[in-house]
Design a protein around this nucleic acid. Structure first.
Length: 154
DNA sequence: GCCAACGTTGGC
DNA sequence: GCCAACGTTGGC
C-alpha cells in the first residue's frame, strides 16, 4: 500500500468536481509527465490512498483524501484528437500515458494551507514543499499522512 | 502578470 | 550526446 499526494487546479478539476461525480469516483487523466506516468503505471494499486491538493488558486493546500480504486491503465484521452489532452505520439498499442480511478474518501472540514504545511517540522521533507517541485503526483510517507489527517481533524 | 524552476524539443 | 530555446507549472 502506498500513500500519495495528487495536485489539481480547482478551476479545472477540484474536490467539488470529484464530490459531484457518480459514486464520487473519477478517472485521474491528463498526466503528461514521465515521472508521474511511471508512478501511476508501475506503483499505484487498489488500496492506495491519496491526498487531494488544490494548486494554482487563491488558497493552495490539501482539501481532502481519496482512495485509489485500481492499478493504472492507458489514458484514453491521449487517443482522442479533439481532446485537449490528445497526444498524437501515444499509440493505443503501446500507450504513452496512464490514468487511474480515484474515489473521494473525505472532504476535510478545512483546507490545510500551504503556509500551514510549511510551518510543521514533521512535514518539512514533503516533496510538495521542495523548491521547484512540479510533479503532479508525489509519494507521501505514512508519518506525513498521519500528521496531515491529525491536522485535518483539529 | 511576474518569474524561478524544471521538463522537453530539436539542431548540430 | 550536448545544450540553447522554448513551454509549463505554480506560488506570489
Amino acid at each position: 500500500m502506498h500513500y500519495w499526494l495528487m495536485k489539481s487546479e480547482p478551476e479545472v478539476f477540484g474536490i467539488d468536481h470529484l464530490a459531484a461525480s457518480p459514486k464520487r469516483t473519477a478517472a485521474w487523466d491528463g498526466v503528461r509527465n514521465y515521472q508521474v506516468r511511471n508512478m501511476i503505471r508501475d506503483q499505484m494499486q487498489k488500496g492506495d490512498v491519496a491526498l487531494f491538493y488544490h494548486s494554482s488558486c487563491a488558497e493552495p493546500g490539501i482539501v481532502g483524501s481519496m482512495r485509489i480504486l485500481g492499478p493504472g491503465y492507458p489514458d484514453s484521452t491521449a487517443f482522442q484528437p479533439r481532446h485537449h489532452h490528445f497526444d498524437p505520439k501515444s499509440d493505443p498499442k503501446k500507450p504513452s500515458w496512464y490514468m487511474v480511478d480515484v474515489q473521494l474518501e473525505k472532504r476535510f472540514p478545512r483546507t490545510i494551507s500551504l503556509p500551514e504545511l510549511k510551518r510543521h517540522a514533521a512535514l518539512k521533507s514533503m516533496l510538495i514543499l521542495r523548491r521547484g517541485n512540479r510533479l503532479s503526483i508525489t509519494p507521501v510517507t505514512p508519518a506525513e499522512w498521519k500528521t496531515i489527517l491529525t491536522l485535518a481533524a483539529s
